[in-house]
């Protein structure tokens, strides 16, 4: 088990290094123009360009530049750890901005994940236990609707109905729990959570259903029944245990993906999260901010993968030894 974790950790280190390398290539080496000018913002004065060149070490050979880049990320820079650099557009350190944005995205992603698990998994289980029943058909109809409804359509429709017409829910924007209290925060998050969760809930319902139906046909389920266990125990202990492990994998990957920013949901509901920030930065040409979001998104996916793999080893004894 320990060996397995250590080996996974080593791989993660290699992957993270590779990510930084590719990011560096894309942002610093590949553009045909001078990177110092690119990073200096919209009105690059010669002084500014010189300052950028000095700060990034762009006057040094490329490999040294890259080493400095990696060092800044992993060991921190003059603005703290991790080193997220400085925006010459806004003339401010990026770390506090990105930290704040990341918290918003984190709240959106976690709340939404809880919601889609609570909705998707039970629907999938009930459908699988009575395949082709009326419930199953309705649930899979819902799943089809959920998977195929885009957020940019559903979001405005919900806003129109529940905010503009019915007035049951407040409108867009992020109201932090510390400043406005849990009630306001919660009411403002309901719609973003639901909209983001819908497609996932639909997908998880289908996946849970498919897995459980497959597992319930396995030989070891027949053995469990042959032992004389109650059907409840057969499903709960033998069926679900085996069919929910892939769900854990998907959850890790989906959460990891979302932490890089749920771009459309954040934009529709005007939540100042990472995805939203990436879009703003693209429009304002804030190159270092884009670089940061890119790296955070990639790191989030990698680390989520690591966590999933470790959890998986606890869930499936066969993994530990391979």
């Amino acid at each position: 088990m320990l060996r397995y974790i250590v080996r996974r950790l080593l791989w993660v280190a290699v992957t993270l290094l590779l990510i930084t390398f590719l990011t560096y290539l894309i942002f610093f080496v590949m553009p045909p123009t001078d990177p110092a000018v690119n990073f200096a913002g919209k009105q690059p004065t010669p002084e500014l360009v010189a300052e950028v060149r000095k700060q990034f070490g762009l006057d040094k050979p490329v490999l040294i530049q890259y080493a400095l880049f990696v060092k800044r990320i992993f060991l921190g820079d003059e603005y703290g750890w991790p080193g997220l650099g400085f925006s010459f557009n806004t003339r401010s350190a990026l770390k506090p901005i990105i930290y704040e944005r990341f918290l918003v995205t984190l709240q959106l992603a976690l709340g939404s994940a809880i919601l889609w698990l609570l909705v998707g998994v039970p629907i999938g289980i009930l459908s699988a236990l009575r395949p082709r029943s009326i419930f199953d058909r309705l649930a899979m109809g819902f799943a089809l609707f959920g998977v195929s409804t885009p957020v940019f359509f559903l979001g405005p429709v919900l806003l129109y109905v529940f905010w503009f017409k019915l007035g049951w829910l407040p409108g867009t924007g992020f109201y932090s729990i510390t400043k406005y209290g849990p009630g306001t925060w919660f009411m403002h998050m309901i719609m973003p959570w639901s909209v983001l969760a819908l497609a996932f809930a639909a997908f998880y319902a289908r996946m849970t259903r498919g897995n459980l139906i497959e597992v319930m046909g396995e030989d070891y389920i027949r053995t469990a029944r042959a032992k004389g266990l109650t059907e409840r125990r057969v499903v709960a202990k033998h069926g679900l245990r085996a069919s929910l492990t892939p769900v854990v994998t998907m959850l890790g990957l989906d959460l990891g993906g979302l932490l890089g920013g749920a771009l459309i949901t954040e934009t529709v509901f005007n939540l100042k999260g990472l995805g939203n920030y990436a879009v703003e930065s693209v429009f304002s040409g804030d190159l270092y901010a884009i670089l940061d979001v890119t790296i955070i998104a990639a790191f989030a996916v990698t680390l989520a993968n690591l966590i999933v793999d470790i959890i998986y080893a606890f869930l499936d004894p066969r993994v530990r030894y391979t």
Binding site: D219, R222, T223, R318
Partner: peptide, 26 residues
């Protein structure tokens, strides 16, 4: 069904063709 369950595995039991898949892997 509940009475049948008490017989199954206790008074009549069964083993199957493929022992590789008949035990729960977890």
């Amino acid at each position: 069904p509940e009475e049948m369950r008490h017989i199954r595995g206790a008074r009549i039991s069964m083993i199957f063709q493929d022992p590789m898949t008949s035990l729960h892997p977890f």
